[in-house]
């Protein structure tokens, strides 16, 4: 991004655009990638409440997928996923495969 000069910087270094970290992508940190298997999903939303990076997308009370721009691939979602009849709805896979 373009660096601000001293005239452009807001007074006292405050950040006026709340939540602008959203434009910063942390997805490149990931070495393992969560894959969502919809047929095993019971829509419990545990993945959403336990995600440290707000990277589980939920729309109308339903999990709709991952925000891979910000997901760091920690695997908490896959660990906590109860799945359906013992089959996980989230599995971690190596990136690039």
């Amino acid at each position: 991004m373009k660096q601000m000069n001293w005239k452009e910087l807001p007074h006292a270094g405050t950040i006026l655009d709340a939540g602008n970290a959203h434009t910063y992508k942390t997805g490149s940190w990931r070495s393992l990638k969560p894959r969502w298997i919809e047929e095993n999903c019971i829509q419990c939303l545990f993945c959403w409440i336990y995600c440290p990076d707000s990277s589980v997308m939920v729309k109308d009370e339903k999990m709709t997928g991952f925000d891979y721009d910000h997901c760091k691939g920690c695997g908490v979602c896959a660990m906590e996923c109860p799945g359906k009849k013992g089959a996980k709805a989230i599995v971690m896979e190596e990136e690039g495969k």
Binding site: L45, P52, K72
Partner: peptide
């Protein structure tokens, strides 16, 4: 969780906490 999921996340992704850190989970809740 379904009723909570309507609320906007007040802590966005894109922060630089380590992968799998507990603190942002706590703060989101």
């Amino acid at each position: 969780l379904k009723s909570l999921s309507h609320k906007k996340d007040l802590l966005t992704g894109g922060h630089r906490m380590c992968s799998g850190c507990g603190a942002p989970i706590v703060l989101r809740q």
